[in-house]
């Protein structure tokens, strides 16, 4: 079980959180081609290494926040 640092509640068990996938995915604006829309909906980075991702403290303060986690070691560093 991961120990995840919630910016509001501090370090809490992983099972209080819901995973939100890659962080920083912006809704496309303006004229969007089918390919660009497909990329927005379906394509996410899948790195072996550091990954910037979203977590939702669903069973706590219900805050969404971003963290960086290493996808091999599972080490977490919270982002400002």
């Amino acid at each position: 079980m991961l120990l995840i640092e919630c910016p509001h509640c501090g370090p809490r068990d992983e099972n209080e959180f819901h995973y939100g996938g890659q962080a920083g995915i912006a809704y496309p604006t303006g004229e969007v081609t089918d390919a660009e829309w497909a990329a927005y909906v379906f394509l996410r980075d899948n790195p072996k290494g550091w990954f910037r991702e979203r977590w939702f403290h669903v069973h706590g303060c219900r805050t969404w926040f971003a963290a960086e986690r290493h996808t091999v070691t599972h080490e977490i560093r919270t982002l400002p």
């Binding site: 099972n15 995973y19 986690r69 996808t71 091999v72 599972h74």
Partner: peptide
């Protein structure tokens, strides 16, 4: 396990 990983291990929970 919910998160992305290449670690070949998961949570005990």
């Amino acid at each position: 396990d919910a998160y992305n990983s290449y670690g070949q291990r998961g949570g005990v929970h």
